[in-house]
Design a binder for these strands. Structure first.
Lengths: 340, 340
DNA sequence: GTGAAAGCGCTAACAG
DNA sequence: CTGTTAGCGCTTTCAC
């Protein structure tokens, strides 16, 4: 099977290179019996086209890149990424694309990787995870006009294609849920101020309070960083403001906050109710089980690839934009079961 | 910058294609001023070689693949993988390789991916994570004689190259530590029986007891699955055997076991001491902070790539084998501080 | 429906 | 030290 070429297959099947190529690429104009014959030879010889040659001749690499900018440092801690990656990888398999992974760690990486991914000869398209607002790499990628899909709403959408979960509505319904349960002092532990997901979730929080005629108390809004430790300290800060319920913008922060709540000698949900965001596998084992917002992470990754392929095959205009719905998973930490 | 070729650069610099090629590939035989001139043109034009053409002509793709077999289902839950991936990605950046990610989810994926990665035209080499014993994909990869490095000792090493952490010694010192602290009934929650890391850690456990003249009580050995839930149920099973210390083969299981221990109304480490394995970021926040074995995951990934590149450049014989040392991180859950 | 022929953009002898 | 010349293995007009 090594060094086997189109030419070899053609010879053995008694046809020309072109015909074999047509068979491989499912072109219509091949007589049925000829096609059959060629396919047999391919089968028995175990022939497989040379990827580089194919790319060179067709100007299509059938490879897409997943780029994780430096600002996405949470890659190593957030269980979100493995799940996202799985969705992406599965979609690539299904559509016969190869997935390249570009993890930017340093400033030099950034330069090097930008050069590598932006020359059209390696990748047909790029999927990039949005990170902080004002990530320079994303801007450069956007301007390189290679097909590009941003995972997560970018800070300035321009005419880019992106996919995101509807963070505003997700937070809105989570907080509305707390309002309906009768809590009066609902606080929030937000994500980092420069993170669009964090911003949108805070927006949903504010909207839920405002639309239901509640006033907003700034001392009940504490900035976190999406980590467990961040959540822990955030509650310690918020404690003085006496929240009776908290919407944490990530499960990790919710878990950290719960630890702080327990250490303060308070009960969940009786003294402080809490709702998280993500539905990590472990939070249903928390004490008490955590009410949280479930994101369709796998489908998110899968669909991101589908959009990218659409861009590759049908052109990048107009920009495609997709918002995915989330689901509120009600467990015990919000106190819903107790109040019934 | 689009469609710029070697030819264009050559013309602008007033030299031949070959000379430009030499400059790009750092060949020695180019006069210094000529090299300078060519480099200037490359700079100003933003020229970048076409990856496919290069691969086709040189038979080197400068791309390696990371393959995660179906049996490595823990990819989505185990924080180990993001860290591993980071090490791998960084090494790829440093050595100028592109990283392809091949995540096998289904049986069809497996066939499709095997075909794709095993034809030499796409990848220069493969890094595969070892999963269960008897993983068919790994066997096929081994036989495809493309440069291959297995991450984790394979079940039957044959003449393969692999890298692993020294699980036996790691477990040995963890359990020895417990022995030295005076515990009499030291149990273990193992990994899955078909997982080499799990097997080796159990082996280290047995060795530590035996070499120190302790008898082995089978009722103190319970099989887990590396998950938190698994650890939880494992302790419930082991409880009847009255362990006074436990070596859990993963932190996740240790955390689960700790939950079960607390629920049983027992104190850690006073009633039951516990030691984990991995040093996940969260376990230092556990109650009490977990004593555990730290693996050099990042370096592990990095070095795996270095070995693979060695294989690619210097031939796959003889097989390279590397064992990495671990470190016991002593916190409170083992009771060391208390006993002093 | 099929084949011939011209590249795709680069590397690597081989001359000189 | 530099240029000429073949390819690398495939796709894709363009004839037939």
């Amino acid at each position: 099977m090594p060094g086997l070429t189109l030419e070899d297959v053609a010879r053995q099947a008694g046809v020309s290179r072109s015909t074999v190529s047509r068979v491989i690429n499912d072109h219509p104009n091949v007589r049925e019996d000829v096609r059959k014959r060629v396919q047999d030879v391919i089968q028995t010889t175990g022939y497989h086209p040379n990827a580089a040659a194919r790319t060179l001749a067709s100007q299509r690499s059938w490879m897409i890149g997943l780029v994780l900018p430096r600002s996405v440092s949470s890659f190593f801690t957030d269980p979100y990424f493995p799940r996202l990656t799985q969705g992406i990888a599965q979609a690539c398999n299904q559509y016969n694309y190869t997935l390249g992974l570009f993890l930017v760690s340093t400033k030099e990486d950034e330069e090097e990787i930008f050069l590598r991914v932006s020359r059209k000869s390696l990748l047909d398209g790029i999927l990039v995870q949005s990170g902080h607002t004002g990530d320079e790499l994303i801007d450069r990628l956007v301007n390189s006009n290679i097909p590009l899909v941003i995972a997560g709403r970018p800070s300035q959408p321009k005419n880019t294609s992106y996919i995101d979960v509807d963070n505003v509505n997700a937070a809105f319904s989570a907080v509305s849920h707390l309002v309906r349960l009768g809590y009066r002092r609902i606080g929030t532990i937000t994500g980092p101020a420069n993170n669009t997901a964090g911003i949108d979730r805070k927006e949903g929080y504010l909207r839920a309070l405002t639309e239901r005629g509640r006033s907003v108390d700034p001392s009940l809004i504490v900035e976190g960083d999406f980590t467990e430790e961040g959540g822990y300290y955030a509650f310690q800060t918020m404690k003085a403001a006496c929240p009776d319920a908290i919407f944490a913008a990530s499960d990790a922060m919710a878990i950290g906050a719960m630890r702080a709540i327990h250490e303060a000698g308070l009960r969940i949900p009786d003294d402080v109710a809490i709702v998280g965001f993500d539905d990590l596998p472990t939070v249903k084992l928390a004490e008490p089980p955590l009410t949280t917002v479930r994101q369709p992470v796998y489908q998110f990754g899968f669909q991101a690839v589908e959009i990218l392929i659409d861009l590759i095959e049908n052109g990048i205009e107009p920009p495609r934009r997709v918002m995915m719905a989330t689901e509120l998973v009600i467990r015990d930490s919000c106190g819903a079961s107790r109040r019934k």
